[in-house]
Design a protein around this nucleic acid. Sequence first.
DNA 1: CTCGAATACTCACGATTTGAGTATACCGCG
DNA 2: CGCGGTATACTCAAATCGTGAGTATTCGAG
Lengths: 181, 181
Amino acid sequence: MVESAPAGLECALLGLLRGAPTHAYELHGRLVRAEALGLVWHLKQSHLYALLTRLEESGFLTSTMEPRGARPPRKMLSLTPSGRDAFAHWAAAPVAHGRDFRLEFLAKLYFAAEEGPTAVAALVERQRAACAAWLADLRAQSAHLSDTQPYAQLVLGFRSSQIEAILAWLETCAAVLEASS
Amino acid sequence: MVESAPAGLECALLGLLRGAPTHAYELHGRLVRAEALGLVWHLKQSHLYALLTRLEESGFLTSTMEPRGARPPRKMLSLTPSGRDAFAHWAAAPVAHGRDFRLEFLAKLYFAAEEGPTAVAALVERQRAACAAWLADLRAQSAHLSDTQPYAQLVLGFRSSQIEAILAWLETCAAVLEASS
DNA sequence: CTCGAATACTCACGATTTGAGTATACCGCG
DNA sequence: CGCGGTATACTCAAATCGTGAGTATTCGAG
């Protein structure tokens, strides 16, 4: 029950429990199988169990044993209000670093897409603003660099170009998901 | 002395020991201070010591205690032939995943830049080929996707656009470092 | 001469991640 | 009918990673 904010991807697990209570095994099945999030996030079974245990210890979810006659019982998980809250906050906030895009932002986008075009548009717009700020910062740094540091120039150039590509891609996000709704 | 291939960034440490034997403390100083690699790679002191210990245990480097009169002795590190070899192999090979660019590829580029425009050109060209292959693969995957999976399309689109940006940036690499040599 | 910064290194711990294992129940096949 | 393979559901010990915090000495500024 320690209640410290859960780390990025743990919140995505909370998101998967938004609907009906589920048990860990099925969650894992969803992730590795069809579920689109599995494209983005690979998680071993044992790791998943560990994460869920921690989320429970921290009070973001509760479990009840579901007896199933002859078969072994299942540990059914559901969100606590605190868990629901943590997810909502996480899902709405943009990521803070370019390196968090591959996994964390795409996960956020997944949930936003489930919720509808409005949520997507809001997330994309917040993220766009954050990226624009990073880019401005990088350009300022780059300007302070002398020509005698070509390597540093390349490093900053690399980061800038990655962020520019992200910005361009963000433009297409809202459009694509809008078109298919 | 277990001799299993060292992980990506450990090889970069080997690279920093190519020249004169050095001791760990100075290595750390170089990394956090001026040294351009510090832009890319942040490493706590204790972590660095741990990595170096492991590299020594694996036989990639050897140490000798340098007595310094009254002052405490230093543990001077130098590459073994096996270490020199591991570095050379690592430095010449392109990285295998987009996610390795931020750190590992930029580190390789750093050493290539030290060595001269020829080495840079060779590394860049190999990496370009690898990236082109990834891109082709992504496009093939994308083609197999139905329109009913807009999220998956976006994910693949994201990856493609990141790699395209990398390809464009690679073009500028050789040019920039060539110009400043 | 002393106080703080720099030098040089060590250690114990917590968190993360993984491989490997356990145990039961269902289902098809001969 | 019973045998083996697969699916279900979860557990655990252990490697690995990474960090904070500490130690001990020396040097230079005031």
